[in-house]
């Protein structure tokens, strides 16, 4: 009886200690993330412009109604979807090849494993500037290489025209983030036991057959996590677009985050800008929900 009683008091004090230790981190999260997100949700229901703060008033869902007929918003939305789908799809393919390469037991895998970390580690704005110079229509090395290879016959203003600017940005994003994808997939590959491959090799399965019947199915959970994670990141893309094109030419590469940024900080329209931000948030929320469900099954 005595020991039972003692255990109970330890349990209580342990819980108390637990809450005490968690409190500061929780407080920060609530202050810096939860409170602002709620505030953004409420701001989106107001007409509020810092140029005339006294005119702030509650207008319900009017901001969202305006957005539905706002052609610039709709184009930004479409651009964001295009950017997200294309870059994530390409990253998955390139990342997969990198992962398979790094998983081979040959000399040289160490070099590539170190190299892939470099694009990941440098600031996005710096890599965007580097590519911007390489894409330059006159002095850029991209045109030079493609001309020498005979792929193009005259210089292309990659970032200067609507038809190529988005593609050029997607390519840069693929360069920057497929290494990360490759590392995630590699970790997944390394988790697959080699026994399965050996057994199937004995049964006469070809390498290609093995890839589609063993590797892909067993890698599915990792791929799903990597895909959702990258989708969330790509959907809120800002740095690359801000630095490389600023949304131009015209508004042909403007994404939702950039549109919201301009609305808030250039037009000082906090109400409308928050409404755009809420749209982004809701989309990310859906993906995040799936992500947590997938990841949660394993780690929680």
């Amino acid at each position: 009886m005595i020991s039972l009683h003692k255990k109970k008091t330890i349990g209580v004090s342990e819980a108390r200690l637990g809450y005490m230790l968690v409190a500061p981190a929780l407080f920060c999260i609530l202050m810096i993330a939860i409170y602002p997100i709620l505030k953004t949700l409420s701001l989106s229901l107001y007409s509020m412009n810092l140029q005339s703060p006294s005119d702030t008033k509650f207008i319900g869902l009017d901001n969202f109604k305006t957005l539905l007929s706002d052609l610039r918003f709709l184009s930004a939305f479409w651009n964001t979807i295009k950017f997200t789908v294309c870059s994530v799809a390409f990253e998955l393919c390139v990342g997969m090849v990198m992962a398979l390469l790094m998983n081979m037991k040959l000399k040289g895998t160490g070099v590539i494993r170190a190299a892939v970390l470099v694009p990941w580690a440098i600031p996005t704005s710096v890599s965007a500037l580097m590519w911007m110079f390489m894409y330059n229509d006159q002095y850029g090395v991209v045109n030079d290489i493609l001309t020498k290879l005979g792929i193009i016959s005259k210089n292309v203003a990659w970032l200067g025209q609507a038809s190529t600017a988005m593609k050029a940005m997607i390519f840069t994003d693929v360069w920057k983030t497929s290494p990360f994808m490759g590392l995630l997939l590699l970790a997944g590959l390394q988790g697959i036991s080699s026994d399965i491959y050996e057994a199937s090799a004995v049964d006469g399965a070809s390498k290609i057959r093995q890839f589609f019947s063993i590797t892909l199915p067993l890698l599915k959970p990792t791929m799903l996590v990597a895909l959702i994670f990258r989708t969330i990141e790509a959907f809120r893309v800002f740095d690359i677009v801000f630095v490389m094109t600023g949304g131009g030419p015209g508004n042909s590469t403007e994404t939702l985050s950039l549109y919201a940024y301009k609305t808030i900080f250039r037009n000082l329209d906090f109400g409308m800008g928050s409404a755009v931000a809420v749209v982004i948030f809701l989309f990310v929320l859906v993906f995040a929900f799936v992500y947590i469900r997938v990841l949660g099954k394993d780690t929680l």
């Binding site: 602002p36 997100i37 505030k39 701001l43 809120r236 906090f270 931000a277």
Partner: peptide, 23 residues
């Protein structure tokens, strides 16, 4: 708490920037 912090890490910066800016 873990779920909360994971979801917070996925918040788009743009979605919390205006209240933070005013603050």
């Amino acid at each position: 708490i873990l779920c909360l912090s994971l979801s917070v890490s996925m918040f788009p910066a743009i979605a919390i920037v205006s209240p933070l800016f005013l603050f």
